[in-house]
């Protein structure tokens, strides 16, 4: 199941790259780099989430910052 998910994620990511690449031909290097980095990051994150669904993320940082105010609402 895990490998199936990873395969699915890879397939989706590959599809995104394949879809965008022809249009990026005329674009600058910066654009290509952005797309590759963003998609790569997406792939990495997705795979990590498959292995560690409970992985702490930026949401937890936000929660930690605003918790004191949030507690007021919980009252």
């Amino acid at each position: 199941m895990i490998w199936g998910s990873i395969l699915g994620i890879t397939f989706v990511v590959a599809l995104i790259i394949l879809y965008e690449w022809p249009k990026l031909k005329q674009g600058s290097k910066k654009e290509k780099a952005t797309v590759v980095v963003l998609t790569g990051a997406g792939w990495l994150l997705a795979v990590l989430l498959v292995f560690f669904p409970e992985m702490p993320g930026p949401t937890d940082v936000i929660k930690a910052i605003f918790q004191p105010l949030g507690r007021y609402m919980e009252k």
Partner: peptide, 10 residues
């Protein structure tokens, strides 16, 4: 436009 799908995925 090239950023649409990668950002959607994120």
């Amino acid at each position: 436009r090239p950023l649409v799908f990668p950002l959607g995925f994120l």
